[in-house]
Structure formats: structure tokens, C-alpha cells
Design a protein around this nucleic acid. Structure first.
Lengths: 222, 222
DNA sequence: CAGTCATATGACCACATAGTCATACGACTC
DNA sequence: GAGTCGTATGACTATGTGGTCATATGACTG
């Protein structure tokens, strides 16, 4: 976590530093991320960085556990679902919010994806990631149980299996599908700023419905 | 690719080197993998390793593009599906073969998973991975089209979306589900050699059926 | 203006580790 | 036994980079 000095800096300077760090950590895996790039891009000296943060791991941890979640919250907002919403509406809302964020902030998305892939490196981060997973899991299981009780789900569904797939589908999986729809690789898509913007709201919602439809009743063709 | 010298070595020595390399590359990401560990574990000198391979990247590439596929083929074998098989039988067979391999060879599985996660590092490997993906994709799409033509699929299914999910489900996703069934994290599961053996053939097949059932007709509860 | 404090600096150090090379070994030939 | 050829060795070099520290700047105080 940042040292007090960091909080005393001007908003603009903090921003320069954060931007530089995000750019670096989102473009290469943690082990390859280079603090010299960060300080150069931020226009500060190496010594200063160590006046603000405890080190590389500290900076990375702060970005992922404090800064990124804040940005995400700010961007998505905690939209309460309408009172009588079906679990499909709730899921759809979550899916769409996630994809909209990815479209609006491809760099932050890349940062998050990188984290998913090498969180095992920093034991402290592994714990963070485990908690995230557990929270998402609990939320999904609760939702699915509710759905099953209301008869909104296919009756033959194994909830645990479904929750596992939805967890993936809500995150990376959805982005993969998007990339697929554009004929690209996930990384290619996130690296090209313009391309995601070509997706229409309509395409997006259609894609989301195709995903959720897997868990709803089929049309029942024999 | 290995230099000619490597092929002249005794089977046993080649084996020691390969085992050491697999152990290293499967336990840490490529950037962190240390050739000194490899030579020590293999009981050879650093110079020798460079007599056998062009360098770190060369060794890694060979493991993933030649050695691992061979081992996989040997372990799974190219079982032709029975002539009149439904796509569900074919998929089930593929799923089960994949999981059996993971159970039998957790270290090789870890190696493969690591590769999936940092293939972007080595441009040459990115190409390899792209080809794998494309091949898997083509196979799945073909299978699904066949299934749709025969009416074995839910009629409302978007084939492209389904193929995307199946691609994940056949690989990492299936392993994730397995770990979930054991109450573990994917990496925890692969790191503990004993634990996977506790799964019965029955549990395994049941899990696989739960996954494929997502794409089949639901029981149709309103 | 002297003193003090927070902040800034970048040359520098410490260390890890990919890759090299001069040298040695040993089997096989003549 | 001298020559030669494929192989083995590990000390060494080159490089990249996380982290440190003596020194500086400059604002504010009395």
C-alpha cells in the first residue's frame, strides 16, 4: 500500500504515476514489468517511486486491490437490480456491465486479465484472488438457487457445474466470445483500441442472450 | 529444436534432461524458469545444455511443440469414434480422454496450462498456440454442424458461441470443474499428486455429462 | 538568513541468470 | 602413443533490473 507521501502528491502527479504503472503492468506479465519504464513514463526518479511505494510488489498489489476495484466501481456503479427481476435479467445486467467496462477501458481489462494469469507469483495476491473467486461463487450459487426455486432454470441443471461455467462466462469467457465475434484473438482485441467500438449495443446484448440461453430451457427440438 | 548432439545421447540421459526441464517449466512461468535449476536437476553442466539446445526459448519450444504432443498422443491415442456415434458420444470420449490424461500426468498438464497463460511472451509460440486454437475450433464447429444437421442439438443454439464454450470446457474449464468438485483451486489440485486419484471413474463421467447436458435439450420444466 | 523538514534525484550497488569459451576428457583410429 | 573428433565442464562474462543512499532542492519557520 502507498506510503503517506504518495497521498500528499498533487492529483495530477499521482495520476501520471498510476497511468504509467497501469501501462506497464498491463502490457507484460509481472515478472517482466520494468520499474525503470514506469518512472520514465511518469517523469519521476526511481528514488521517488520508492518514496511512494514499498517496492514493485507493493505497487502492483495496490493497483489491483485498491485502485482497480475503485475504478471499476466508479465505472459500473452498483446498480441494484429491479425488485421483481428474474435471475436472467440480473445475469444479463451483470454481463452487459462487464462487457461495457471492457469496451470502455481495455487497458484496465488487460491489467485484470494479466492478474488472473499470474496471481500465483505473489502469495499475497493469490489470497486476494481466492477471495474474489469465493465471493463471485457465492453470489452465483445464491442466484442459481433462487432461480431454481422459482423454476426459472432448466430442471436438469447441476448448480455447481453451472456456477463454474457462469463464473468463466461472466469474465474472460465473455471477452473471448466477443473477440471471436470479431474474428480476433483476445489479446489482439484488447490491444486494438478502435476495434471494440465497432460492436453495437445490439450485437452485445444478442451475444449475452446466447450465453445465458445455455442455462435456460431449450426450445426442445427432439 | 534440439541440435543433433542431443539425439546421440543415451535414452536415459535425454530423459533426465527432459524431466528436469518439464519440472522447471511446469512449476514457474517462463520468465522465472531458471536453466541453472534444470542443469542441476539433470546432472549435466550448463555448457552441455547449450550443446543440446539453442537456448532457453529453444528448449521450451521443443518441449511444447514436439515433446508434449508426442507424449499426449501416446497417452491418449487417436481413438477413432465408433462409426454411428452421436456427437455427444464423441465429445464425451474427448472430454474423458482429456481428464484421464490430466489425472495421469498432472505435471504435463501444468506445463500445458502454463503455456496457455504465457504464450504471448514468445512470438514464435503465439503462432503455435493460434494454430492449436484454430484446429480445435474447426473440429468443434464441424462436430456441432453435424450435430445440428442430425437434430442432436438444442435448436436455439448459436454454434459459434457453443464452440467457444466447448473449447474452454474441454480444456481448462473441465479441470476447473474437477477442482471445484474436490473443493480445491486448480493449481492446488495439480500440485497435490494424490488428490486427483480419489476421483472415481463414475464421478468423472457424471461430471462430463453435466457439462455436455448444457448443450443438449433441457428437460423442459416451464 | 539559518535551520529544518518533506520531497526529489540518479548514480550506484547487489544480485540473478542467460549465454560463452578455453580447456579437458575419452573413445576410436592408424 | 599421437592425432582427432565428439562431447563435457564450470568459471566467467554480459546484461537487466530491483532496490539504496548520499546529496539536492525548496518551502516554510523563527
Amino acid at each position: 500500500m502507498p506510503k503517506p507521501t504518495f497521498h500528499n502528491l498533487s492529483e495530477a502527479k499521482r495520476r501520471r504515476i498510476t497511468d504509467a504503472a497501469v501501462a506497464e503492468f498491463s502490457s507484460v506479465p509481472y515478472a517482466k514489468a520494468n520499474l525503470d519504464h514506469v518512472v520514465k513514463a511518469a517523469g519521476i526518479s526511481k528514488g521517488s517511486l520508492y518514496q511512494y511505494f514499498g517496492g514493485k510488489a507493493d505497487l502492483y498489489r495496490w493497483l489491483l486491490t485498491s485502485w482497480l476495484p475503485e475504478r471499476k466501481m466508479a465505472a459500473i456503479g452498483a446498480q441494484a437490480p429491479p425488485p421483481g427481476a428474474s435471475i436472467w435479467q440480473i445475469l444479463e445486467q451483470a454481463f452487459v456491465a462487464g462487457v461495457r467496462f471492457a469496451v470502455a477501458e481495455p487497458e484496465l481489462t488487460r491489467l485484470g486479465i494479466r492478474f488472473l494469469r499470474d496471481h500465483e507469483l505473489e502469495p499475497a495476491l493469490a489470497e486476494v484472488s481466492r477471495q474474489h473467486r469465493a465471493a463471485a461463487d457465492a453470489w452465483l450459487m445464491h442466484l442459481l438457487q433462487q432461480g431454481q426455486a422459482r423454476g426459472e432454470l432448466r430442471a436438469d441443471l447441476d448448480l455447481s457445474v453451472a456456477a463454474g461455467f457462469l463464473a468463466h462466462a461472466l469474465g474472460e469467457g465473455m471477452l473471448d466470445q466477443l473477440a471471436r465475434a470479431l474474428g480476433l484473438d483476445l489479446h489482439e482485441m484488447l490491444d486494438e483500441p478502435g476495434v471494440v467500438g465497432t460492436l453495437t449495443e445490439d450485437q452485445l446484448v444478442t451475444l449475452v442472450r446466447h450465453v445465458t440461453s445455455l442455462f435456460r430451457d431449450g426450445a426442445g427440438v427432439p
